[in-house]
Design a protein around this nucleic acid. Structure first.
Length: 598
RNA sequence: GCGGGCGUAGCUCAGCGGUAGAGUACUAGUCUUCCAAACUAGUUGUCACGGGUUCGAAUCCCGUCGCCCGCUCCA
């Protein structure tokens, strides 16, 4: 018998997702494929609603954000420029004894005496291993300790009283083939590339390798110039994109939380560098560390914009039913931040699998990261493509001319320092970096700069899982016969609920009720996602819709047909969360629903 | 990638060497005037996949795949 389930809530959610058609394992009939998931009928509706709400909120309801839909496969140079080719492919080695994993390029080179063994034999059982094994013995340590490590290795192979065989020794200088902690031999370095590869064109050769994008962001940077030139937007403005991304994760885990094919909703919001803001407005606005800073202001620098987007995104999550209590935050420490990043705030959701920290608090796991990425990304593409990524800012040029000379040189010096730091960190030789940084500082004085960026980047699938976890509610009740029964209600916010309304005739065997119910259903289905059901008792149909998370159910009864003349052409509307019912005229039904689900 | 656990009907699980079951769900019917009602009848499985041991395998062994947990990795 299996042990008690480690995470019963998670198990229930996974099982409900399958039972009700939210999420299936990809390729299930062939045994599945690790890290890939399909969305069933209800899941597809839920996901569509979430993406549509994001798109509407981020683009259509704003003056300063436009959309983009780029390809998944792009020029491989993009991934060179972004750093993914380098940082996403680290050769790794494992310790043969402790199984600890090392990045091959981070192992301290060591010197000493290498002890090779050809195998070992168990004195008691006669069991034998012919697997060779080596141990590095640092200078000054007794040979016994090397033999001891080897014995432990063979013991882990099932030879409890190992007698080592074939011992020979050899000197080694600056080797990285051994675990620095215990001297045990490591496996050969094996490449780990987190990007999925394919070939473009019929020839499968190295020069035809292409990558499936590991994030959607880079397409936005790569198309920045085109969008900027054609959209009549001026900095500050943003480009939004929703799309698939792929990562060859070592360990896909936690249902759809970390998968190999996933969908992102990303905004790259381009802003002026702080030096430009200061030149134009005299100073950069400061905003409080907490709370929404209000409507965007022209004198906002990166800190204010970063805060603004964190709060905007929290409002979005609250607007689809994730209350503040279910969310968490992680402010990346300077050590965690990438070298080019100024700040990064992660918005977390407290998933059923989220762990407690040392203080017993559940922090949550990441739904979205809002990063202040400086001008790193556009600068990288400028250097790698040779195309200028800067913008010209009339306002800055005019303002700059009116600045006192000392202010000009102060801002120039700061901009120069920032550009120099970027260039040298990127490996540009010192001399050239200084020249380029000087040129950039002169450009600033003429109204030119590479925009900085604030990047709110959200994972759609994780959000779906958060919404499902958040909606899941079980109640167990005992009826008068003492029979206990568990009911599941998915309390989705009406805005994201896959089905908005269920339409039922009270009884199936009364043709007048069925005909009227079909008529009401037809009038609603074009406006909102509606579901018609006449199978089983009315209570059962309500329960089915509760499990699907349908917020409203409409029942056509004899009063609808005029049994009580004053109720002619009215229906019962039943609310999912409290079971309460109200009477609404059919003529008002559509407006009533739209007001609640939009 | 390593270690541990697991994989039986759509779902939850029982069966653990003698040829597949329960509850639930689903379908049809009777009935039913608002919260999983009852009754009747019915459908559903290459027992994850492949191989081996055996007269005989869901059951034992090996391999593969997948899921969960811990490491490792990852944002």
């Amino acid at each position: 018998m299996a042990e008690a389930k480690d995470n019963p809530l998670m198990e229930k959610i996974v099982s409900l997702c399958k039972r009700r058609g939210f999420i299936f394992q990809s390729s299930e009939i062939y045994g599945g494929i690790n890290g890939f998931w399909d969305f069933g009928p209800l899941g597809a509706e839920l996901k569509r609603n979430v993406k549509e709400l994001w798109w509407t909120t981020m683009t259509r309801l704003r003056d300063d954000v436009v959309g983009l839909e780029a390809t998944i496969i792009m020029a491989p140079q993009i991934w060179k420029a972004s750093g993914h080719v380098d940082t996403f492919s680290d050769p790794m080695c494992d310790c043969l004894l402790t199984k600890k994993r090392f990045r091959a390029d981070q192992i301290e080179p060591q010197s000493g005496q290498v002890f090779h063994f050809s195998g070992a034999k168990d004195t008691a059982s006669g069991k034998e291993s012919v697997e060779p094994f080596s141990v590095l013995l640092p200078a000054g340590k007794p040979p016994e300790s090397a033999r001891n490590v080897a014995s432990q290795f063979y013991a882990s192979r099932g030879i409890s009283q190992p007698v080592l065989s074939g011992e020979r020794t050899e000197k080694a200088e600056n080797t990285t083939r051994f675990n620095p902690e215990n001297g045990a031999q490591l496996t050969d370095p094996r490449p780990f590339n987190l990007m999925l590869q394919t070939y473009v064109g019929p020839i499968q050769s190295d020069e035809n390798i292409a990558y499936l994008r590991p994030e959607t962001a880079q397409a936005i940077f790569a198309q920045f110039k085109n969008v900027h030139e054609t959209s009549r937007q001026k900095v500050p403005f943003g480009i939004a994109q929703i799309g698939k991304a792929f990562r060859n994760e070592v360990t896909p885990r936690n249902f759809i939380f970390r998968s190999r094919e996933f969908e992102q909703m990303e905004l790259e919001f381009f802003i002026k560098p702080d030096e430009a803001i200061e030149a134009i407005h005299g100073s950069v606005a400061t905003v409080a560390d907490t709370g929404h800073p209000g409507e965007p202001q022209p004198n906002w620098g990166w800190q204010a914009w970063h805060r603004y987007w964190v709060e905007e995104r929290v409002r979005f999550y609250e607007g689809i039913g994730l209350s503040k209590e279910t969310l968490g935050f992680h402010h990346q420490t300077p050590e965690e931040l990438a070298h080019y990043a100024r700040a990064c705030t992660d918005i977390l959701y407290k998933f059923p699998f989220s762990k407690r920290d040392e203080s017993g608090e559940v922090k949550g796991d990441e739904l979205e990261g809002i990063a202040a990425r400086s001008d790193f990304d556009l600068s990288q593409h400028e250097r790698h493509s040779g195309k200028l990524m800067g913008v010209f800012d009339e306002e800055l040029r005019t303002a700059w001319g009116k600045l006192p000379a000392e202010k000009q040189s102060e801002l120039s010096a700061r901009y120069y320092a920032a550009r120099l730091k970027y260039l040298t960190k990127s490996g540009v030789p010192q001399e050239k970096a200084e020249l380029d940084a000087k040129e950039d500082a002169e450009g600033l004085a003429k109204g030119q700069y590479i925009p900085h960026v604030i990047e709110p980047s959200a994972g759609v699938d994780r959000l779906i899982l958060a919404l499902i976890s958040n909606a899941f509610q079980e109640t167990t009740s005992t009826d008068e016969k003492g029979k206990s029964e568990t009911r599941t209600v998915m309390k989705f916010h009406p805005r994201v609920a896959p089905v908005k309304v269920g339409v039922f005739p009270l009884l199936k065997n009364k043709p007048e009720l069925v005909a009227k119910a079909r008529e009401v259903f037809q009038s609603l289905r074009g406006q909102v996602m509606a579901f018609y059901d006449d199978a089983g008792a009315i209570g059962r149909r309500y329960a089915r819709q509760d499990e699907a998370g349908t917020p409203y159910c409409v029942t056509i009864d004899f009063d609808t047909l005029g049994e009580k003349p004053e109720l002619l052409n009215t229906v019962t509307v039943r609310h999912r969360d409290d079971g309460k019912q109200e009477r609404i005229a059919i003529s008002e039904l559509q407006g009533w629903l739209l007001a609640r689900v939009k």
